[in-house]
């Protein structure tokens, strides 16, 4: 598995798409920091970008990479190797190279800016952690979609729909259900519904770090208990881990049964 991972990783690290992605974050980071001159403001803007963009890029890269390297995958499958090794190796290679683009692309400008001496380092850290998690989650989801769909167009379609669903439609439904069931106690439902969407979850994780937690607490005791303390942080991180582990396990299961 390590060999496959290494191969895929170095192949991707040299590809121009990864460079473009890296350069985009690099430019974004520099522009944000040196134009706004305020780290905390820059972090909020970056959060808006990361929470939307990393899932989208992860999804598209995941699907694209799977379909493009299909022949190579078939070649590998002819070798005496376990299927799980091949697919999980590919998955980790891809998501790690994307996550690295993000970390370096944003990390370098912040280092130049003197982040290590600034108090915003933890906020920034949580931003990067959430970004990396989102990359891993959405690449895995995209892989699942790609593996289960022979037809590329369909695969792309489903993948984009999945992104759209989690980034926008889910929130819309969430909002409507909150407004419709206004008369009932909703705080537990709202918290649980948030757990089922990695984008919402990482957004809240970052917001908690950015000290807007008091705003959440204003709403009610459950929110205060959950989001106003470190409990919320720990549980959010755990659920994000689950969001990585479960899809990866699904890739493994689907790949094992799949015919090529």
């Amino acid at each position: 598995m390590l060999k496959i991972f290494k191969y895929i990783f170095f192949d991707l690290v040299r590809s121009r798409w990864t460079y473009a992605y890296f350069l985009f974050y690099l430019a974004l980071g520099f522009v944000m920091l040196f134009l706004s001159n305020d780290v905390s403001k820059a972090i909020i803007t970056l959060m808006n970008v990361i929470v939307v963009l990393t899932p989208l890029v992860g999804t598209i890269f995941g699907v694209m990479h799977y379909y493009n390297s299909r022949e190579f995958t078939e070649l590998l499958l002819a070798q005496p190797m376990k299927r799980s090794t091949i697919f999980i190796g590919q998955y980790i290679g891809l998501s790690l190279s994307l996550a690295l683009s993000l970390l370096l692309g944003l990390g370098i400008p912040f280092l130049f800016y003197g982040l290590l001496r600034s108090s915003a380092i933890w906020d920034f850290g949580s931003l990067l952690v959430a970004g990396a998690f989102l990359t891993f989650i959405f690449v895995a989801l995209a892989y699942i979609i790609a593996i289960s769909n022979e037809n590329r167009i369909k695969g792309f379609g489903y993948a984009i729909l999945m992104w759209l669903g989690l980034a926008i439609i889910y929130d819309g439904l969430f909002l409507i259900s909150l407004l419709v069931f206004d008369d009932y106690p909703l705080d537990k439902f709202a918290l649980i519904a948030t757990m089922f969407n990695p984008i919402d979850l990482s957004r809240i994780l970052i917001l908690l770090k950015l000290d807007i937690s008091a705003l959440f607490g204003y709403t009610g005791a459950t929110f205060k208990m959950f989001l106003g303390t470190s409990l919320g942080m720990v549980i959010s991180l755990l659920v994000l881990c689950m969001w990585v582990v479960i899809p990866t396990w699904l890739i493994y299961r689907i790949a094992r049964k799949r015919d090529f």
């Binding site: 939307v52 980034a167 929130d171 909002l175 909150l178 959440f216």
Partner: peptide, 17 residues
């Protein structure tokens, strides 16, 4: 909206909002 249904504060800074 937050004034009407305080729980919607969870959607703070989301793309949909």
């Amino acid at each position: 909206i937050v004034n009407r249904t305080p729980e919607t504060i969870l959607l703070l800074r989301s793309l949909f909002m």
